[in-house]
Nucleic acid binder design. Structure first.
Lengths: 342, 342
DNA sequence: AAGAGCGTCGTAAACGTTTACGACAACACA
DNA sequence: TGTGTTGTCGTAAACGTTTACGACGCTCTT
């Protein structure tokens, strides 16, 4: 079932059929109508390989995700919502979004190399950005359009959108101080994820802004999992002078944090205030509900898509925005895990 | 950077280069060595579109996932581990696994039609199998190799692997009865997911096997989310005669279940026994830890991959297993959420 | 009436790869 | 020496599509 069959069936040339289907102007409207009608009737759909080969483009964009729990900060609902936003924008351009999984036993750079060299996709999203991320250098060098969810230390001239972890740290510290806390712990990502550093830097700055001193003992770098949160609190509880509040880099950790507090006979919120990132059904269903930060995820997805398309020649004119390098805001959702200090 | 450039660089024909790279036997070992060496030196990688066009195959397999929360029973770690298993097998065959997202505002059948007709992949995995699933009929009709994670009512001659929800129901009921429970509730999937029905049927059979009567009031069909679990318990608590134990179709619900019990001044486990599916870090970190069922997920992934390859002519001889239609076992992990009834 | 302009269409090359087929040399065997 | 076999390689067609180019007929202008 090729374009040749369709052309024969209509008694016209394959060139005309192709032009009709691709919406070119030099084809009679009546002819175009007949072509579409016949295509639908006999169920013709263009072969993607042939099309790709000819025009050097695949009409699909890849979202690279790490399956390694060390580098994946977010739960499932996070990416699902982001994907939805991306797809909303892509649908208008007949672009497909596909998810490319980096096997956990493979080096992410190696995996990316493979994806890029195969020319499997026209563009890429990458996430789980490391502090110094060789993937970014490789992508820039290979000249493939891409968008980073998160920024690295090197910066560069590629598009990125980063979540406002510094803002979260500031808002959290300010709120906790207002509620009487003076000794506030931080549990941040222990991996080389850049956001772990951004979060820690924001924490330190926020302490300074509130006139509080910085105690390195209160900063725990942990795995971003239930167990990571558990271990982190374990260490905080062993300090000679415990913090009265703690800030978490993600909400998965909160589960372990609550658990460890319970085991120590303490009540989350009452005996130790907890603020976490991010708002999710899980956060809301914890007891007490976690005070955390909400992200407009599908909006983020849409913006990511726009930012990527803006760098692609074929779509640039439809997205006349400059280089997207933005901080995505998050909004505090008050729970009951950080009541005023008695 | 095409095969032509590589051939010119080596002063041999492109046919020989292609045969050398593809491991055919009719090429001098010394020539083959030179070809591989030169390819690595100048960084040549075969163009996938050209290859696909010629041999009508894409060397990649798609895993279709629903982003709709109504039909997605499992959390993130579930699929991540399954993917890992699939990739282990695929790596040996130079096959790529890509995830194809069905946009939540699109009909899954429509989405699948598009994927299939574009010939984007050589084979497919589908999950979230409905009781009667038109996708399966379409896949059979279109003659594309596929493997279903879950089985539908229609059966048919396609390969599938289904989790042993009936076995879970039996084992759970048996255990609860042993521990003194006589009135046991069930919270199953409210959508048209077939496993929701399989689970309910297993529950009913297990009750009969234990000589207990079936009370339709004790069966709640709910959304497979935190809120779904919450609402389900809410209804169970309103019954004139409360159950002393409850069975959950997934562990996300358990979060809502625990929460609702707490709000009613009840303690999960002590005042109402809870057994859930499935074992995950979350289940373990609940208080009390959830008694649930563990699945060997990467093994499941490997078996899914083998079962798919067994139906594909190009790989069949390397996987001489028949049609895979199997029930995948799950093993009870004792938590503390179902102590003996006082 | 001749030429320009326009709308519509067919022709054929090109994208990069694989593979059927045949060519050729070297060698073994009768 | 002639025939067959084997190992190695080149040639060219084919996959399905897009698109540059030119052809053709029609209308409009001067």
């Amino acid at each position: 079932m090729s374009i040749r069959d369709l052309a024969r069936h209509l008694n016209i040339s394959i060139g005309t059929v192709s032009r009709a289907l691709n919406g070119r102007s030099d084809v009679n409207p009546e002819t175009r109508r007949r072509v579409f009608e016949a295509a639908a009737a006999i169920g013709y759909v263009p072969n993607q390989s042939g099309r790709s080969l000819r025009q050097g483009t695949t009409n699909s964009i890849g979202f690279v995700v790490e399956t390694n729990s060390e580098t994946s900060l977010y739960g499932d609902t996070f990416f699902t919502s982001v994907y939805a936003g991306v797809q909303q924008v892509f649908a208008r351009h007949h672009l497909d979004l596909i998810v490319l999984l980096c096997p956990f036993d493979q080096d992410p750079l190696e995996h990316l190399r493979r994806v890029v060299s195969r020319r499997f996709v026209d563009g890429l999203f990458i996430s789980a950005i490391q502090r110094r991320d060789p993937r970014i250098d490789h992508l820039i060098e290979s000249e493939i359009p891409f968008m980073a969810l998160g920024r690295s230390l090197s910066g560069g001239t590629h598009p990125w959108i980063d979540l406002d972890f510094a803002g979260v740290a500031h808002a959290s510290i300010h709120r906790l101080v207002e509620r009487g806390h003076r000794r506030i712990g931080l549990v941040t990502a222990g991996s080389e994820l850049n956001l772990g550093y951004v979060f820690a830097d924001g924490y330190r700055e926020a302490l300074a802004a509130e006139g509080l001193s910085f105690d390195p003992d209160l900063v725990i770098r942990a795995e971003t999992s239930e167990m990571g949160g558990y271990d982190a609190v374990d260490r905080l509880l062993k300090l000679p002078e415990r913090p009265t509040a703690v800030l978490l880099v993600n909400e998965i950790m909160a589960i372990g944090v609550y658990r460890r507090l319970h085991e120590a006979g303490l009540t989350p919120g009452r005996d130790m205030a907890v603020i976490g990132f991010r708002d999710s059904p899980q956060s809301r269903f914890l007891s007490p509900p976690l005070t955390c930060f909400r992200i407009e995820l599908s909006g983020l997805g849409r913006r990511l898509a726009e930012g990527l398309l803006a760098t692609m020649p074929a779509y640039r004119d439809q997205h006349p925005i400059g280089l997207v390098q933005e901080i995505w805001p998050m909004h505090l959702v008050a729970g009951e895990s950080d009541p005023p200090l008695r």
